[in-house]
Amino acid sequence: MNTLRNILMSALAALAGSAPIATAALSQGARGPAPSLTRPATAEKAPDADGFMQRWLILEPIPVSGRLADSAVQATVKREYFTNQLSVIPRDGDKVTVGGAELTWHAVDTKGYNVNLYHFAYALSRPTSDVLFWIVTIVNCPREMPGVRLAIGSNAASVWWVNGEEVIGIYGDRQTVIDDGVSRRLTLKKGPNVVRCAVINGGGATDFCARFLDGGDKPLKGFTLSVGETGK
């Protein structure tokens, strides 16, 4: 774990501390900075007081149709845009090519309970409407945690996976509501667990929030979040 921390700290040392996300790492023509997002400055981050997960890797948005009905969303997220899109654990700065365009993964911490994808894309001069965001975080558990639930909200539709299993899909033109979609009971294994989501926005604002709930529907604590390496 210390090795992991050292690696991550070395990598993060090159980043701009807790500065708002923008600047040189972002695409040419970036408007930055995104007011609600910062670059991670530590190797790991605990969830906030209400259990919200505030550290994520986000891929620059992929233009899609923006249709939000159940079947359209499922078709959109099941299409392959880049290799291993449902299993890759990206690192900050990794790039993929989608439809001939090079897109970059960005590590972010959010200042709020939610992650404002509009801020994220706007700061990068990327489209915010009719887009698909791929988003990943690593949940590091000191022990196995059975009987927990992933609880999310998103603007707009989103599909969520935990350790490769699809656990939530919420559809339609909707706003982010805390604990809108909640998974069935699941088990977080000891060590790293991968939470992945795809958010599709039709138009206007776009954001999401996510936390785990324990068996009593209280915010789950006692784990950390990291991006990039996973403790291997």
């Binding site: 007011p35 609600s36 923006g66 709020g112 939610n114 404002n116 509009y118 801020h119 706007y122 915010t128 409407s129 009719d130 603007n155 706003q175 982010t176 509501v177 805390i178 039709g202 138009g203 206007g204 604002a205 776009t206 954001d207």
Partner: peptide
């Protein structure tokens, strides 16, 4: 389809 700037935090309800 265009939408607006989204406000400083998209807010709890994330209005358009």
């Amino acid at each position: 389809a265009g939408g607006g700037p989204g406000g400083p935090g998209a807010g709890p309800s994330g209005t358009n």
